[in-house]
């Protein structure tokens, strides 16, 4: 590891000041499962770690029917899937949080880190998009909010400006009749990077879809919100035909690359398949069925 200084600010103001004063080589340290590895391998010039885990807002996990869910950006995955309220109301977040790395990674890895890292295959990002997540950002000019689907800009890049940090992600309370599901395709069951991943959030009135948000990952330079896939469902009954129309929209939106994990053709196909499967599971959850996250 290169020489590095460690700071542990107690407030968002202090954290922002440290980031601003020390420039781009001052890196936020949440769970460290991305940044410590990148710093050690010198893939990111890192002169300072700004550990944000002593800041109460960053470690907050709270729900209210009016405010919805607030997930502090540094809350580790294990706290998310062991939380009774989140498990009951946001099983789609559990789908993601319980798949990021293995148990020891989940002891530290945060949704905020996953989002800020801006990997095209980040496993929490499609879920956060589908669930209408909003990133709460603090910086030298105060607070601002960015929708999760607009947060990542390119592989490893996000909208944060100098001195800004992600403080929390907010989700509206689930609508009555809604359900959401995240799935990832990898060649084994755990511990790999997605070939494709996908999340769907549906609201049903009887069998008619009244709202739908679908996002796919690992098929574009950033996790992709696919409004056309949702639009193929809204106002229509959930049938094999409407589901196929939505899945086709995902396949059309995907602009993947060939790499060692999968080919363009396979990724296009998987965009279709995972869209279809997440729609079916989301509908089951919307109807109150239990769909286990593993």
């Amino acid at each position: 590891m290169q020489d590095v200084t460690y700071r542990r600010p107690a407030t968002v103001q202090e954290a922002s000041q440290l980031l601003k004063d020390n420039g781009p080589t001052a890196r936020v340290l949440a769970g460290g499962t991305d940044i410590i590895v990148m710093a050690r391998e010198r893939r990111r010039d890192t002169r300072m770690f700004v550990d944000i885990k002593a800041i109460p807002e960053l470690m907050q996990l709270s729900f209210s029917a009016t405010e919805g869910l607030t997930v502090g950006a540094a809350v580790p995955c294990y706290r998310i899937y062991r939380d009774e309220t989140v498990s009951r109301l946001y099983p789609c977040l559990l789908d993601s949080a319980s798949l990021i790395g293995g148990t020891a990674i989940q002891g530290r890895a945060s949704l905020g880190g996953n989002l800020c890292n801006a990997g095209p295959a980040g496993d929490s990002i499609p879920s956060m998009i589908a669930l209408e997540g909003e990133a709460q950002i603090f910086g030298p000019n105060g607070w601002r909010t960015v929708k999760v689907e607009d947060f990542c800009t390119a592989p490893g890049r996000n909208v944060l400006d100098a001195g800004e940090l992600l403080v929390s992600i907010k989700f509206p309370a689930p609508r009555p009749g809604s359900g959401a599901r995240f799935l990832r395709f990898i060649p084994r069951n755990e511990m790999d990077i997605a070939v494709v991943n996908c999340a769907t959030n549906l609201t049903l009135d009887g069998n008619t879809v009244t709202a739908a948000r679908i996002a796919i990952g690992a098929v574009a330079p950033r996790p992709l919100f696919v409004p056309a896939a949702g639009a193929a469902l809204v106002g229509r009954p959930l049938t094999d035909e409407t589901i196929a129309a939505a899945a086709n929209a995902s396949r059309d939106a995907a602009t993947p690359i060939d790499d060692m994990r999968g080919s363009v053709r396979q990724r296009k196909h998987l965009s279709y398949v995972l869209t279809e499967r997440t729609i079916r599971d989301a509908a089951r959850r919307a109807r109150g069925e239990i769909v286990s996250h593993v």
Binding site: T33, D51, A104
Partner: peptide, 24 residues
């Protein structure tokens, strides 16, 4: 962070000690 050979229990949860800073 990939192999788990360095796993320890830190404040009640399992972590890989190679991806934790001592300063923390």
């Amino acid at each position: 962070g990939n192999c788990g050979a360095c796993a320890v229990i830190l404040d009640g949860r399992l972590v890989n000690s190679c991806v934790v800073m001592a300063a923390e």
